[in-house]
Design a protein around this nucleic acid. Sequence first.
DNA 1: ATTTTTTTTTAGACAAGTCTAAAAATTGTT
DNA 2: AACAATTTTTAGACTTGTCTAAAAAAAAAT
Lengths: 232, 232
Amino acid sequence: MLKHLSFTSSNKKMISQAEENYLKAIYKINEREGKSANTNAISAAMNTTAASVTDMLKRLADKDFIHYEKYKGVTLTTEGSRTATALVRKHRIWEVFLCDKLGYSWDECHDLAEQLEHIQSPDLIDRLDTFLGKPKFDPHGDPIPDRDGNYAKRQQVRLDEMLIGDRGVMVGVHEHSSAFLQHLDRVGLVLAVQVEVLEVFDFDKSVKIRLNGLQELLISNKVSENVFIKIA
Amino acid sequence: MLKHLSFTSSNKKMISQAEENYLKAIYKINEREGKSANTNAISAAMNTTAASVTDMLKRLADKDFIHYEKYKGVTLTTEGSRTATALVRKHRIWEVFLCDKLGYSWDECHDLAEQLEHIQSPDLIDRLDTFLGKPKFDPHGDPIPDRDGNYAKRQQVRLDEMLIGDRGVMVGVHEHSSAFLQHLDRVGLVLAVQVEVLEVFDFDKSVKIRLNGLQELLISNKVSENVFIKIA
DNA sequence: ATTTTTTTTTAGACAAGTCTAAAAATTGTT
DNA sequence: AACAATTTTTAGACTTGTCTAAAAAAAAAT
Ligand SMILES: [Mn+2]
Ligand SMILES: [Mn+2]
Ligand SMILES: [Mn+2]
Ligand SMILES: [Mn+2]
């Protein structure tokens, strides 16, 4: 297998789906933690053993995708970072396609995008991007990097950080699980909805909010700390 | 690798991309030759060695996708046939998407569809089918099987079998190479064009035809024997 | 009916990606 | 500083999918 992963006539490095997935995991850990990714964190993210991760880190270092020193954790090289960002771009554009064109909901599109992001093509994703109207954000509100890997960083706060009287618009989620997204659907806390904080209860950190100037809603801290709001 | 190919909680057999590709190759050989596919034919179609094919045939037989007896060639089981047809369905629907929605030409779409056909999803392809308006034929004129694997067999003749005065509409191609399809584009022999046979030259079996009642065109036998016409 | 040629299978090897169990290094705690 | 706990790496094994070289079987030719 993987015959197609050897070098082609061009000198562009071939990369397997497994390698791509590890790079993406490292990228996300680096972003989230703000520091180098250690072996256990990667194995947790990839659902593999630490031993498997060590094997893979050697391969990725050989191919110059990561900076790796034994026992020191890893960061991405420029090339590794470029590859990971391209993967995130593909993932999010496919998610837009699935939701906008095929009617999938925001809690369904992720798993399919995990497969589609590995399609190799010099320009498929750019054509798809054009077809979709060059969206800037995916169905979860996450920004879509452009071809150069740049994306707008939105200024946003977590709903649990808002004070009484604050107003804003929901622009994203931290947690991405199906269960959480379905719950948000059920209570009406979806992207682009207007949010105004009416009360904050110190006891359990729950908050009473008003949606679109209409219905009032009490939400738990577990929800509010996973919802991003752009303050008006 | 291939951790995701082990059994999931359901009892549905997991199948790798390599296995799918072999099944498709066997299916096409069975169809084209009208008999069991032998090892060399499969290795030629798959660009692998005969030894690799033998290895794979054992695996596919173990999984009950093919009927295999040493030295006797192989045919698909009901399950193998169902899988191969589903793959062809996915391939052709993706080709329609690439050409109709993303602007790829009929000589570009095949390679990308070779990747996209392996996306695993219970209903993605049906949603895509609906999104595209449930097309009956792909960009090469090949019929698209429905979910049950059935497709309309069109009654058609090769252009080189037509007689002087015969008229019809171009509905397909036998050869699918990029070079051939690009040539057809250049001379104007594309799907749905009207064709009338004006002269047949015995010497080299070339034919003079009229396209859409307008321009006349002389085409070689190498072209005419690869073009399918539905007689008016 | 032999002999020759072609096809197919076997034998043995390899890379990718995974695992478990054990060893080594690092970090935390008394 | 020494001991204990945690993290990471190594060692060895397994599966999938591929290869080359050699053996075996089938088909074709004499
Ligand atoms: Mn996602
Ligand atoms: Mn997303
Ligand atoms: Mn095709
Ligand atoms: Mn086609």
